[in-house]
Each structure stands twice: as structure tokens, then as C-alpha cells.
Amino acid sequence: MQALYAAAAVSLLVSVVVDRKRTWQALQVTVRKLRRILPGYLHLLILLSFVLLVSDAMIVRLLGSANPWLGLGAGLAIGSITMIPGFISYPLAGVLVEQGVRLMVVAGFVTSLMMVGVVTLPVERAYFGTRLALLRNGVALLIALLISVVMGLAYGEWA
């Protein structure tokens, strides 16, 4: 976050020094783009604030299923709905591993968490259109599944 502010501040400063008029234009673009997408982000926030009601304990219970396919299915499903930033999801992943959840399930879970987002669809649709947004999320889900399978092989969890 601080890096982002530093980058924005430095770039803005350089831009002002080089050309004041173009900088003003850039800021107008900033405001216009931000205003257009704000409803999308607001919807995302509303969806997200409901989704986060799902507790860590519930996730541990669902992912820790004795059947690896069931656990993986739950991991991919929960991971696809929610969109949790990495700094929250990795500590949770650590808890999952401690509770004995397979690493392949954790891999599918964190990957779909990062790449697939039903909750982020309001924003993604606005930028990419519904068709591409759905296609991209579908492909991402497939990739999450493949990563999980390979992770299972790498850690010998299929045996």
C-alpha cells in the first residue's frame, strides 16, 4: 500500500513538473474512470461482507473431509465464491495444514481463492463483459483443479 502511494506521488510529481496541462488531463481521466466503476466496487463490497460471515472453523470442517475429492470439491467451491486477499488467506491456509487438511486441498483452495471470484464478478463484468468474465473464471477454476492434482503428486498425497 505504501509502495502504491509512493509510486503514485512520485509519478504525479514528475508529471506536474514536465507538463501541468497533461497532468490535469490525467487526473480528469482518474476521476472519470473511478466514478464509472464505483457501483461495481460497491456491489463487490456488499457481496464480500456477506461472504465473510463464513467462519474459519466452518472452512476447516469442510476442507478436512476424510475423502480427498470431497475436501477438494469443498475447497474449490468455497475458494471460488469468496475473494480473500492473500495476507488473510495464507494464515488461514497455515491453520488448515495444522488441522491436517491435505496440501493438495489447500492448494486448490488458495488458488481458486485468488483466481476465481464470483464475488468480484460485478467489477470484472464491467471491464471484460459477461462472456469473457465467465470464460476467464471457468478456465481459472480448471487451473486451480490442475494445481491441486499436481500438488497431490508432489507431496505424495494420492497414495
Partner: peptide
């Protein structure tokens, strides 16, 4: 739900303005 909403709204409000400033500069420069 409201607590979640405000927490993430604050994160978003911090994140988006500098990001969109950079995007605006990108568009122009």
C-alpha cells in the same frame, strides 16, 4: 456484515485512488 463492509470499504478507499491516479497518468503519458 456491516463490520465487514466498513473494514473492506476503508481498504478499498485507500487502495483505489492512488491506483487510478497511476492509471490516469498511464492513459495520458
Amino acid at each position: 456484515v456491516w463490520r465487514n463492509f466498513t473494514t473492506f470499504a476503508v481498504t478499498m478507499l485507500k487502495l483505489l485512488p492512488p491506483a487510478f491516479v497511476l492509471i490516469g497518468l498511464f492513459e495520458v503519458w
